[in-house]
Design a protein around this nucleic acid. Structure first.
Length: 141
DNA sequence: GCCAACGTTGGC
DNA sequence: GCCAACGTTGGC
């Protein structure tokens, strides 16, 4: 069973479109400087799926990515520092982006880390949450 | 643009 | 080891 995650990015820094442009080569999710987020990335296995969330202006889940390379030292961090990153590739966009507003309005999704701890940039998602958001987004889980 | 929440730093 | 000060993030 793969695990599910949510990766958050400001579109002005790294957007879904940029991720899609990388194709199957994917892109290292570097630059994370938060221990909780790093720990979650270390738990990720190749083949795990994650939602790609745009923070700030639009505040919505826009697509689905897959982990293609497990955690390794972050090339943008100082050598010897503990920071690591995984590599992800875009799988498919949601037919309908799922907004933060919608998520907050659903009782079944109100417990998401996205709602409870909005500042955490890499988060776990439960299987039930994954299914529900895929349904809302118009894609197969 | 504002402010709340959170993490980090540094003085003691 | 505690806590105040500060910086950053992100929703509104």
């Amino acid at each position: 069973m793969p695990s599910y995650w949510l990766m958050k990015s400001e579109p002005s820094t790294w957007s879904w479109d940029q991720q899609v442009a990388k194709g199957d080569a994917g892109e290292p999710w570097d630059g994370v400087r938060n221990h909780q987020a790093k720990n979650y990335m270390q738990e990720m296995k190749a083949g795990d799926k994650a939602f790609f969330y745009h923070s700030q202006k639009t505040r919505e889940i826009v697509g689905i990515v897959e982990v293609i390379e497990e955690a390794k030292p972050d090339p943008t961090a100082e050598p010897g520092s503990p920071w690591e990153c995984v590599t992800i590739k875009a799988i498919e966009p949601l037919k309908t982006p799922v907004t933060l507003q919608e998520i907050k309005a659903k009782d079944s999704l109100a417990e998401m880390v996205l709602v409870k701890n909005s500042r955490l940039s890499v988060q776990p998602v439960t299987a039930a949450e994954w299914k529900e958001i895929c349904n809302l987004g118009g894609v197969k889980p």
